[in-house]
Every structure is written in C-alpha cells, then in structure tokens.
Simulated scan of single mutants.
Amino acid sequence: MTDAYYPGHDPIDYYGNGGFRFGEMSHQGAILFLPSGVHRWDVETVATLSKDHFDKVLAESHDIEILILGTGKNIVPLPQPLAHHIRQSGIKLDVMDTGAAVRTLNILLSEDRAVAAALFPVS
C-alpha cells in the first residue's frame, strides 16, 4: 500500500463523516498533519496506538514544538508510557477531542507555529 500524502500545510476546512477536508481535497480515516505534509495514518482507535504509530512524528521532531492528538468525538487519554515516549523527544503533547484539535491546529498554523497533529476522524 502506498503512503497517501499531501505536501501542503493548508488548514483543515471540514471534519466529520469519517474524514477531513483540506487543500481542496478530502481524506477518509485518520491523518497525521506533519511539517512534511499530511499523511494517511493507519490506526483504528486510541486503544490500539503503539509507539510505532508515532514513528513519522518522531522522525520530524526537530521541526515540531507541539503535537495535538485529536481522539475522535470524545477525549480519550493516551496511555502514560506512550505519552512519555512522545514527550521524551522534546515534543509537547496535548490530547483533546478532534473538533477542538482541528480548531487549535488551524489557529496555531495561522500563527506560523511548529505544530503537528495526529487526528482520528469523527463519524
């Protein structure tokens, strides 16, 4: 399977119905919004997250100040060992529901901040 990838940093215009719209395109499923662009994120639920799911984030950690994790309709805490693994790389982690995560991401993008996001879709 090829990596679905969009090289832009456009704000997210819409989220819902299991996906996201940004840069005049849309994507169904979870996404990683990184300094290198927007990538498909192959993960089903917060409960199934592992360190491996954050490899792309950590590979770009030198360009990321804060990682926003949008956990879907409701806030779901990240297991402490996984949160510690991310923070150990020097990245600040903020967990919130996906709606708040999208709004926060868009604000931080408008301020030209070094932000990344890992977003679960909302149905």
Rank of each mutant, 00 (worst) to 15 (best):
I64G: 02
H9N: 15
N74P: 00
G29T: 09
A100M: 09
F22A: 07
L82C: 05
G8E: 13
I91S: 05
G72Y: 11
A100T: 14
R87M: 13
P121L: 10
N17G: 08
A59R: 05
W41S: 05
L67D: 08
G16Q: 12
W41K: 04
A47Q: 15
I75L: 15
E111N: 08
Y15A: 08
F33I: 04
E60G: 01
N74V: 08
P77F: 14
L49N: 10
G37P: 05
T48G: 03
D3G: 01
W41H: 09
M1A: 13
S123K: 06
D10G: 09
Q80N: 08
G29M: 07
G70S: 14
V43T: 14
A30L: 08
P121S: 09
K51P: 00
G37M: 06
Y6H: 15
A114G: 00
G72Q: 10
Q80V: 15
Y5V: 03
L69D: 12
E60N: 08
N17Q: 12
H27K: 06
E111F: 04
N17M: 04
D112V: 07
P77T: 06
L119M: 12
T45L: 06
N74M: 10
Q88D: 14
D42H: 12
A47T: 07
A100I: 02
D63M: 06
K92W: 06
F22V: 05
R87F: 01
S61Q: 13
I75H: 15
R113I: 01
L34P: 10
Y14L: 07
T45S: 15
T45H: 13
D3W: 06
A100Q: 12
R87D: 05
T104Y: 02
S50F: 00
P121H: 11
L105Q: 12
L58K: 04
A116F: 02
N17W: 02
D97F: 07
S89L: 03
L32S: 13
F20P: 06
H27S: 03
I91T: 09
E24P: 00
Y6G: 01
K56V: 00
S89G: 05
T2E: 15
S61R: 11
R21C: 11
L78V: 15
K56G: 00
A30G: 09
V76K: 10
D10C: 11
T45A: 10
D94W: 02
D97K: 04
V115K: 11
I91H: 08
A59L: 04
S123E: 15
Y15W: 13
L93C: 12
D94T: 07
I64E: 02
G29F: 10
D13C: 06
D42I: 00
P7C: 09
T45E: 13
L93E: 07
L69M: 14
R87T: 11
L58E: 03
S89H: 12
A4F: 14
L119R: 04
E24V: 00
A83L: 03
P79F: 05
H62Y: 03
P7R: 03
D94L: 01
G8D: 14
V38N: 08
K73Q: 14
R103M: 11
